[in-house]
Design a binder for these strands. Structure first.
Lengths: 147, 147
DNA sequence: TACTTCTTTATAATCATTATAATTAGTTTA
DNA sequence: TAAACTAATTATAATGATTATAAAGAAGTA
């Protein structure tokens, strides 16, 4: 399952003339297998056992390469650092206000909203971003403390 | 019209025990009258004629005060600095990928999406965020250069 | 008026991200 | 396979937004 994603991603990269380095392979693999929408620093620390000499700049550089190739989405919230999400099929995120957990949920794309926005504003629309906020079940039952 | 917003905002602040200083008054007034969803630095520079001694920290501090009071929303995108939006009635934003312009558009709230998300994930939902991206008419006709 | 508390100011610190320059390593082609 | 070309990595410094700190100032109150 996730091996298919990885293989496809590598093909996509190769087709756009991007070299497959061990670091890129590892970052992609980590992103795909990760359920946690990691920050650049989390990726860096997760891989430092395998790549003791890897630079943080490499992580940032490659996340940008992946983003430009459409493989990865950057998620920015009010807090300090961006999170990165491997793009698979259309899904949205729901985020816990207390513990920050991000969970995927599936929902059909909001084309009608895009159409209305385009009609009202005269923009040519090409994408949108939607996130839902709330309290996750664990925080709701008091298992975690509030932030 | 906008005076009503300002007056209401001042009442809200006073009720939550926040002192109305000249700086706070000016920042709020600027936010309400502004059509541009300014950054903290833009607010700072816009007011430095009237408040030559005001510190950037004051702008940040008060934006946080306003945010905590529910008067202001912080908008974070991939780029460097947050933008701040005075909260009026429900509206969403459409953002130009080329020149960064942010335009409001009205659309009924996406309660059904919130319900679905809540049902699927078990979260208690309390809000969401939606933005549409595209190219504004000016950029589409080539009046501006691409980023 | 004096007191208490909140706010502002000025400045330094923090921290994520990006730029730079030198070195290293993929990839291509002979 | 090896040389050559070019892109990628590394280490480090720089940038820039935001936050923390401490001292000075102002608002509200007794």
């Amino acid at each position: 399952m996730s091996e298919v994603y990885l293989k496809d991603a590598l093909v996509t990269l190769k087709e756009s003339g991007v070299r497959i380095t061990p670091q890129r392979h590892a970052i992609l693999e980590f992103l795909i297998s990760s359920e946690t929408h990691p920050t650049a620093d989390e990726i860096y620390r997760a891989l430092e056992a395998d790549f003791p000499n890897m630079s943080v700049a490499t992580v940032y550089n490659n996340l940008r390469v992946f983003r430009n190739a459409g493989l990865v989405k950057e998620l920015t919230y009010g807090d300090s650092s961006s999170r990165f999400d491997f793009v698979t099929h259309d899904h949205y995120h729901i985020i816990c206000n207390h513990c920050g957990k991000i969970v995927d949920f599936h929902h059909p794309g909001l084309e009608e909203v895009e159409h209305l926005a385009s009609h009202v504003t005269g923009f040519e629309v090409n994408s949108h971003r939607l996130e839902v906020y709330g309290t996750c079940p664990e925080c709701a039952t008091g298992a975690n403390k509030a932030k």
